[in-house]
């Protein structure tokens, strides 16, 4: 029974996420209309056969914008997670391998980074560096670094105490080789789960940044800005706010379900604990 529930999480999350990725990929080659194509005569149209989700304040097709928005949202989040993991994981692995003072230094630095609220840090960075998709990726990526550093370090410390590591050390393997060949493969599952969760958070962060005008810049569509644009039209065209809201909700829900499912499937410790 429990097993079935677990796989249902995984299936639902995987299906939603796959759908989002598919939509994002399709939007690269095809959308019903150009996502920046305006049609002022048909502005603020309600859903119809021609525009399944209606049109926005400039008469742009809402569905096309959502599709293109998925692409920009997912790519910002993906790069942000890659930046975070790409820097955070080596730092964490280094701390775990060395232990002692380097470990303390790295972890206290992470504590320091955690003391700043993540989203506010991102707002600060984009406000300083200038708005735009690339800066948003970096800003979100930066607050992902300590998350990955800490989780890597914690999980890696656990692996470093295991017998096969001692054996590898006894065989004269260098720490770096042990980290790459033995430690990282053993904590890959934990990192994958964390990456999924961070991915979901990054989507929310991207939406937040573009909502306040610091993320993806017009005319490139983004979910956050669609929400902002829709806000003052809420009495005339309430659906304009509903669709991007739903898109963000589904993307985050899908990734979180996927993360949960993956965790149950991949992480033996959790499975044993239950």
């Amino acid at each position: 029974m429990r097993g079935a529930w677990r796989s249902r999480n995984l299936l639902a999350g995987g299906a939603i996420t796959a759908l989002m990725v598919l939509i994002a990929l399709v939007s690269l080659v095809w959308t019903p209309y150009g996502p920046t194509q305006i049609d002022i005569v048909h502005r603020l149209a309600t859903p119809s056969a021609a525009h399944p989700l209606g049109t926005d304040l400039f008469g742009r097709d809402e569905l096309s914008m959502l599709m293109a928005g998925a692409q920009s949202s997912l790519s910002v989040a993906l790069i942000a997670v890659i930046v975070g993991a790409g820097i955070g994981v080596p730092i964490g692995a280094f701390a775990a391998a060395r232990g002692g003072v380097p470990d303390d230094l790295v972890m206290r630095a992470c504590d320091l980074a955690f003391a700043f609220p993540a989203l506010l840090t991102a707002v600060m960075i984009t406000a300083l560096a200038g708005p735009g998709a690339i800066n948003a990726m970096l800003a979100i990526g930066i607050f992902n670094i300590p998350v990955f550093a800490r989780i890597t370090r914690g999980a890696a410390r656990g692996v470093w105490g295991r017998e096969f590591i001692l054996a590898a050390r006894a065989a004269g393997r260098h720490d770096t080789a042990i980290t790459v060949l033995h430690v990282l493969p053993n904590i890959a599952a934990v990192l994958l789960v964390q990456a999924t969760i961070q991915f979901a958070l990054a989507i929310v962060a991207d939406a937040g940044l573009s909502y306040v005008g610091l993320g993806t810049q017009p005319p490139q569509p983004s979910w956050g800005r669609m929400l902002n644009d829709a806000q003052t039209f809420i009495w005339r065209a309430p659906l304009l706010a509903v669709f991007p809201g739903l898109a963000i909700t589904f993307a985050v829900l899908g990734l979180n379900l996927l993360g949960d499912g993956l965790q149950d499937l991949l992480d033996p410790r959790v499975r044993r604990a239950r």
């Binding site: 920046t36 194509q37 305006i38 002022i40 304040l57 400039f58 708005p131 810049q217 017009p218 005319p219």
Partner: peptide
């Protein structure tokens, strides 16, 4: 807002307008 509309109109005649808020 005008910038977004004008960018789309200029696009129709082959000019790519980069918008900088």
């Amino acid at each position: 807002r005008g910038g977004e509309v004008i960018a789309a109109m200029l696009d129709q005649v082959g000019i790519k307008a980069k918008l900088v808020p």
